[in-house]
Design a protein around this nucleic acid. Sequence first.
DNA 1: ATTTTTTCTAAACGTTCGGTTAGTTATGTC
DNA 2: GACATAACTAACCGAACGTTTAGAAAAAAT
Lengths: 187, 187
Amino acid sequence: MARKKEYNETEVVEKAMHIFWRNGYQTTSMQMLEKEMGINKFSIYSSFGNKNGLFLESLKHYKSRINSIFEKFKKADNGIEDIKQFFYDSVSSNFEEGNEKGCLVTNTYNEFSESEDLLIKEQMNSFMDGLKTIIIEKLKMDPSKDEETIIKQANFLLLAKHGLAAAARVNTKKEIEDYIEMTFKNL
Amino acid sequence: MARKKEYNETEVVEKAMHIFWRNGYQTTSMQMLEKEMGINKFSIYSSFGNKNGLFLESLKHYKSRINSIFEKFKKADNGIEDIKQFFYDSVSSNFEEGNEKGCLVTNTYNEFSESEDLLIKEQMNSFMDGLKTIIIEKLKMDPSKDEETIIKQANFLLLAKHGLAAAARVNTKKEIEDYIEMTFKNL
DNA sequence: ATTTTTTCTAAACGTTCGGTTAGTTATGTC
DNA sequence: GACATAACTAACCGAACGTTTAGAAAAAAT
């Protein structure tokens, strides 16, 4: 019927995700995106609507990218050990070649915490709620823990994960792994 | 000799600091600053050079604002208890009325981690190095800790502080205080 | 081969950005 | 009260922002 697209949408979203991950939303301009994605503004707009749409798509892509870690986490069956392993896996993936520093979700969480972009806030909250649910589930596998302890430890671990992601932008892998060890020392 | 300034520079820096603290550097425009500071662009530029200069001045103002907490921290003499108290004081100040969420230094650290603004990076590093030095000093007051343990625990506490500041943007005071308790449980 | 449909390039859109400047107003000195 | 100096207002600067559009290029359908 007509001309074919010369680019693959998933591939260019991957590239957009990287630049958002590295620089944040505000700092990333359409010009930078054009260059990094290797396609024209027109193509970006026809595929993703606008900058915000492309960012949301990048977020979704990021989530699907780390989905294997999440699935492994969910399926495991060793209680609190799974949470620790999940932290290790997150850090590990963070220091893999080709990945940017820190966690895109956490970065976004910080950048948009005072914003009123409901779509993005919804994405963030669903992510965090999901994580919290799994953590609580894992903690409940230890029958010696009462309800109050579980809630407290879950909040503690969520905050720790938050700090972990923030620290991953500036600390070494070794420092972060030491941090994980200490975090789980007395839970 | 000539006309007097109709504004107080410290007062308008205080206002600028708040808006940077709330929104970050990039998201804050000169227009927003004019409105919040209640003075004209001309006055901003004649007093602070440019947006970056105003931001640096805001950072300095922020530091002097939290200086009392720092001084108390330095002067105290109870080892690791002082660090814990410092964490509590930081959170407390964070939830005082009239203060924004989170820590301006940590926000800036995150926003500029991939930037090449040397002036700001220098400000950040000097701040973090200073904090680390004090923490190590406090940890050394416990003679039972060897050198390796001290370094590990210092890194742990720095990361925890980092996470604390990030979490302060989205969590409740109670959650954060629980987090502090758990952090110091076995140090 | 012509038509139809979609993607492409590239220029331009209006707006806002950070920053400047001409000219008026106020405050002091002589 | 005239003059000098500095602070004010407000219009304006070029550049960059996110976004749109006109028209060329390409591919399938007729």
